[in-house]
Nucleic acid binder design. Structure first.
Lengths: 238, 238
DNA sequence: GACGAGCTGTGGTCTGACCACACACTATAC
DNA sequence: GTATAGTGTGTGGTCAGACCACAGCTCGTC
């Protein structure tokens, strides 16, 4: 045996992963009932539940009680769900310094907008939802929290437009990790109306750079946008 | 109440997260014993265990039976541990296309080596472990698996040298996600000695570009290195 | 045919029990 | 006095059983 005394819940996890890799399970499929799974794998139901809990937090399955087609544990492969939890908790546990989180966001978002801009030179990526969010943000009656939520949604919509699921999921995780921090920083800003107006202008210029195919300009704009807000809130937070 | 009927294990998860955020728990600290935690939070021990299992997979805690200072559940905030599981399972469940994984790796590694090269112009980042790995890879008696393991270790060591924990963790996750794929691809290569020799040369040139401060050259080299191997194995795998 | 009560299977939770393990303590032997 | 062996204690690991809430299905009644 290569692995002796594997934890019972790991046995379950490995079995599910193997079923996924070998095609016996696919998104949309139902996992066997917990009791059946326990009996088949020769472990207790508690161990099965621990493994299922992990899969649920990782965004791989969705569980529902009751009976019928919608009940039970269903493979959903929802990317990003687990990433958010992971990032949030790691930041909470000081595993991830916020500065590193911001820098990673700079890299990924810079790439995304540059790629989108490149794509705009030959085709027309779907950026309507991004534009719609910007329009919604111009509503003057928005609270800070609402504005920041839309702000985050805008950045996420760009990632989604890029079509890269991994980057989208990572971005979602990073965003939720920064959220509390950004919110707290906003409260200490000298002038929220002034900052929000600036953020809006920056958003517009980012989108314009993308649509006109200026990859470098888009990258620089989004990076200045992110690091600018970070620096501003970082300073006032101290 | 904003959230009614929260799952019992979520109560535990939230409580731990709150303790982390409020500083009542820090890396190195022990969590209360499962039975105590259950009693304090008013849930059953099973629910506590489900939450602890999630924290363990996410790389936040390490559990050990027995008594004494090393036993119990300890906050470790080991970044990357959870990321690996997450990426592996998401790829297994077809949540993350391999192409997206590779592209993300291109972006992140390109940034890392460029940043390292920039740093080399003004200081001397610690790249000794990276260099040592390359030396170890020149051993002719290595099997394919051993060579690829060192290859992965080399890329990871570059990320570690950059000092960015988030990128390092993400890289670790991406790497383990590709590992099986890369391994499978290597088996179908026309000439392993030829490929491995090329990979070695590429590694050397990447490291040389970093040490001489040529950021752009380093980025291009590492991106060609990754996408080259991907394209090669991708083709032969079909 | 329409409706409703009851049945069934599912996840959610708790309790209690037992085991294996690692350390701390104590008693014994030298 | 020191070293060693044995025991005690608290921990996580696992299991079995029980009960609940819920959602859908079945079947009898009207």
């Amino acid at each position: 045996m290569t692995a002796i005394s594997l934890r019972a819940w790991q046995v379950v996890l490995d079995a599910v992963e193997l079923d996924l890799l070998e095609g016996r399970l696919s998104p949309g499929d139902h996992l066997p009932p917990e009791r059946t799974l326990a009996a088949d794998l020769g472990v207790g139901r508690s161990s099965v539940r621990e493994a299922l809990r992990v899969l649920e937090v990782l965004g791989l399955i969705r569980t529902a009680a009751g009976s019928g087609p919608s009940a039970g544990a269903i493979i959903v492969a929802r990317p990003g769900g687990g990433m958010s939890s992971l990032m949030r908790l790691q930041v909470a546990a000081q595993g991830f310094p916020v500065a590193d989180v911001v820098k990673t966001r700079l890299v990924l978002e810079g790439f995304i907008v540059a790629e989108l801009a490149e794509a705009c030179r030959t085709s027309t990526p779907d950026l309507t939802s991004s534009a719609q969010i910007l329009t919604a943000m111009e509503e003057h009656s928005l609270t800070e929290a609402e504005f920041l939520a839309l702000d985050a949604q805008f950045h996420l919509s760009l990632a989604e437009a890029s079509g890269n699921l991994v980057i989208t999921a990572t971005m979602a995780g990073l965003r939720s990790a920064i959220e509390g921090y950004a919110r707290a920083g906003a409260l200490g800003l000298a002038s929220w109306p002034k900052t929000s107006a600036r953020l809006m202008l920056e958003h517009r210029s980012i989108l314009r750079a993308i649509l006109t195919g200026q990859a470098d300009a888009a990258r620089l704009a989004v990076q200045a946008h992110i690091s600018g807000y970070y620096a501003e809130t970082h300073l006032t937070a101290h």
